[in-house]
């Protein structure tokens, strides 16, 4: 966000409070809905059970019209300026990334948010998935930085 020194971690800012509160609520909904269980995801992806599709679908059915309405009204958010939705066009990296993500999701039976809840619930193999997710994200970050440093001068590399 801002250049120079990092924002302090232990500072009671509105954004930090919003961050932890929304994290807690999101994590609690995932845990209450058993999305942190391998079986729930596996039964969804083997099409034995449609609950998770309905869960995701109903979340979108509630949020899409509300976001459309707020954006149309030119809603000013208290902490983030005017509400601006992002609607980029699909590119090759979306298909490539999505394809790899799906394969990994099916094998690991979890994804970034539920993996944390998996650990909360005492599932020790969540401690195998978590560093894997970090590693995957990190490998891509390194790849991008390397590509950038090969194509543009050093000082314009985002840090």
């Amino acid at each position: 966000m801002s250049a120079g020194h990092r924002q302090p971690l232990f500072k009671l800012t509105k954004m930090n409070v919003i961050g932890i509160l929304f994290g807690i609520m999101f994590g609690a909904v995932l845990g209450a809905s058993n999305l942190h269980e391998y079986d729930t995801i596996h039964n969804m992806l083997s099409l034995e059970e449609i609950d998770v599709f309905l869960f995701m679908g109903s979340a979108i059915a509630v949020s899409a019209p509300a976001l459309w309405f707020l954006e149309r009204r030119g809603f000013a958010t208290p902490l983030g300026g005017d509400l601006k939705l992002s609607r980029p066009k699909p590119e090759a990296h979306h298909v490539k990334g999505g394809a790899l993500f799906g394969i990994g999701w099916a094998i690991a039976g979890t994804c970034p948010a539920p993996a944390l809840v998996m650990i909360s619930s005492g599932a020790w193999m969540g401690l195998i998935a978590l560093p894997g997710i970090f590693l995957g994200l990190h490998l891509r970050e390194r790849q991008v930085v390397r590509q950038l440093s090969e194509s543009v001068p050093e000082e314009s590399v985002p840090v």
Partner: peptide, 24 residues
Amino acid sequence: VFAGATLLGYGAAVAGGCTSGHGM
């Protein structure tokens, strides 16, 4: 599980999001 998790992390980074960011 480790390999699957690495793959999904890498894929999410390439795609710019995961099940929550893009999916929902």
